[in-house]
């Protein structure tokens, strides 16, 4: 009995989001649902405080975050997925000089570092990408996470081609261009990494000399 109520509340909230995102289905929501959504938003705003670099605007969702929150825990409808991927693909920028591959040794350091953007981090120091938190990369590093797939032999398996290099750049820049609601941060689009840093992480993945491909 109580479980059913909970599901109803949750799906009620989902309805609001779909309407707020409006373009998709254009359905009307009941006033009670809207009140519920507003209450959730008000609760969120009153429950956090700005701390150093982590200011309250980090709670504001862009359309991708909003849609991915609303559809979390169930299958993403095809049109929604396509819309998210299209919008995110449009954000991807390639470097002006066209150079996509940097230094894999520096890329390894960036992949190891979990620092950056937490309120406990020094905002003047460069951020890491923390790749190893979720992926296996160089086989020498045994402490790797499994939230994402193993990237060991990424370049070797895909071929050391321009296409692979371009794909690696884009995937790091904005993973949701290829996989709507991916768990992976959008490192370029959200300005987590600089172009130079992305270049180095691309090198870690695609350089034949990188331990990832040995």
């Amino acid at each position: 009995m109580q479980r059913r109520n909970i599901v109803r509340t949750a799906s009620g909230a989902l309805l609001i989001a779909a309407t707020a995102g409006g373009v998709l289905y254009g359905c009307a929501s009941a006033p009670a649902d809207r009140a519920d959504g507003q209450r959730a938003e008000a609760m969120l705003k009153s429950s956090f405080k700005a701390h150093g670099q982590a200011t309250l605007d980090r709670l504001d969702q862009d359309e991708t975050q909003r849609l991915c929150s609303e559809y979390a825990g169930r299958a993403l409808p095809q049109p929604v997925a396509e819309r998210i991927e299209k919008a995110n693909l449009a954000t991807i920028r390639f470097p002006a000089d066209g150079k996509l591959v940097g230094d894999w040794k520096s890329g390894e350091k960036i992949a190891q570092s979990g620092r950056g953007f937490q309120y406990s981090d020094d905002p003047t120091k460069p951020a890491g990408a923390n790749c190893y938190a979720c992926h296996q990369l160089s086989p020498q590093e045994l402490s790797y996470g499994t939230i994402g797939p193993s990237l060991y032999q990424f370049g070797k398996r895909r071929g050391f081609t321009d296409e692979t290099r371009r794909y690696a750049w884009q995937k790091i820049y904005n993973a949701q261009a290829f996989n709507a609601c991916s768990n992976m941060p959008r490192f370029g689009h959200r300005h987590i990494l600089t172009d130079a840093q992305i270049r180095d992480v691309v090198a870690l993945l695609v350089d034949p000399a990188s331990p990832v491909n040995r």
Binding site: A40, Q61, S69, E70, A72
Partner: peptide, 14 residues
Amino acid sequence: LGEKMFYYRGGTHD
């Protein structure tokens, strides 16, 4: 509300 919070994506890293 807690369930909604659990799935709420935000911040620089989504």
